[in-house]
Amino acid sequence: MSQLTKKLKLHIPEYTDEIYQTIQELGENFSTLDKVSKDYALSPPVEDLWDQNDIIWNLKPAIGEYVGWVNTRTGRTAPQWEALTSYRNGDYIIPPEDNGHVYTCIQAGHSGVMEPVFPTAADREVQDTRGASTWQRSKLYFKNDIVFPTVDNGRFYVCITEGEAGAAEPAWNLTSGTSIYDNTVVWLGYRIARWKESGISALFRPFGKID
């Protein structure tokens, strides 16, 4: 029967061990060594699941920089939410201001102009159209105002040229990024993205500033 090393608990095969047992234990050794090997990068990760205490070492340490980043919370890393950005189903994001949660895109589309109020309850959903209102005739609109058509079409429209809306509702184009002229207002349309709370986010923090 094989023995175990003191620190990493690696298997030390015995000459009397069966071949299949030795191969299995060597495979476990490789997995253990891979897990404890150092990870190097130029910045903290923005994808995958990470355990608390996982460390990313700075690939190019320099004076005034940090030795690396340590994860303080077991969870998933993801890029931060960005305004007017195209997202696909299954994309993960975290809020720009950490709230301890990660979110999955469950309806492909574009994010809005304003960051949505992300829910923290498990599996809760939010539509990425914060600040939007239903279009109104002859109303004065300003740049980055967001409207919905009076008849829902799954899209929102962002004002890119401020002015006064027309007396009649414009024909809302369904192609994302297409200009729509509404008297003196110009709109760009986008498909609405939707998010779902999807668990705890990892939280990497820098350590070891180099003087």
Rank of each mutant, 00 (worst) to 15 (best):
K7Y: 11
L8R: 12
K9V: 06
K9L: 13
H11W: 13
Y15C: 12
T16I: 10
D17I: 07
D17E: 15
E18T: 12
T22S: 14
E28N: 14
D34C: 12
K35Q: 15
K35F: 15
Y40S: 03
A41E: 10
D54W: 02
D54H: 11
I56D: 01
L59R: 15
K60Q: 15
P61W: 05
I63G: 03
Y66I: 01
T74S: 14
G75V: 06
G75C: 05
G75K: 05
W81G: 01
L84F: 05
S86R: 14
G90F: 00
G90T: 03
D91S: 10
D91T: 08
I93M: 11
N99I: 14
N99Q: 08
V102P: 07
V102M: 08
C105N: 15
C105R: 07
I106S: 00
I106T: 12
I106H: 05
A108M: 09
G109H: 01
H110A: 13
H110C: 10
S111N: 11
S111Q: 02
S111C: 01
V113C: 08
E115Y: 04
E115N: 00
P116C: 04
P119D: 07
A121C: 01
A121I: 13
R124L: 08
E125I: 14
Q127A: 11
D128R: 04
G131R: 02
A132G: 09
T134M: 00
W135A: 04
K139Q: 15
D145R: 05
V147N: 08
T150R: 14
R155V: 00
I160M: 00
I160C: 02
E162P: 12
E164P: 01
A165C: 15
A165P: 08
A168F: 11
E169D: 05
A171I: 12
N173S: 14
N173R: 08
I180R: 09
Y181A: 10
N183A: 14
I192R: 04
W195C: 04
E197F: 05
I200Y: 10
L203R: 14
L203M: 08
R205P: 03
K209L: 11
D211A: 12
